[in-house]
Amino acid sequence: MQNEYAPPRVDVADVNNVSGNISDAMIESLRGTKPWTMLIAVMLFVVAGFMLLGTFGVIIGGLAMTAMGGGNVPTEMRSVFLAIGVVYSIFSVIYFLLGFYLIKFSTAIGRLLANGQPAELASALEQQRKFWKLAGIMTIVGIVLMVVWIVVLLMIPGILKMGGLH
């Protein structure tokens, strides 16, 4: 239901009354930002690389265990190795994407510093928007998974107890 007593309001996304130019202070801030975003991007790529190595390590470890154990390796153990490998590979992709957006942000800043075109500022900020959106969504997913994990851990003793009673 609409509030009849609310003050009049216009909220139009495509009408922006922007005044001013891309100032020297903005350029200097972006110039100072670039090396740090590059550094973090490289670190994110390194972490993604380690995660990928971890994925291969877990898969090879699981296969080796199955090969050496013959039919004695329980199916649950193989499933655990597979699950860890899948989680590692997902994290690897996420870290890679975060690094990728930061690199694109840094290169757009570089173009802005070279050409001074205002479109490059919008381009750089667009990469930043993608970075923060992905980081935010992944944080929400992480928090939800953590809560689910805590609930599951709290329920396990109860389930085991009920199983024992029956």
Binding site: A13, N21, G116, A119, R129
Partner: peptide
């Protein structure tokens, strides 16, 4: 110095 574009505002809002 180049003028700021409205696209900057749209992206920042996101």
């Amino acid at each position: 110095m180049e003028p700021l574009s409205p696209a900057v505002v749209t992206v920042l809002r996101g």
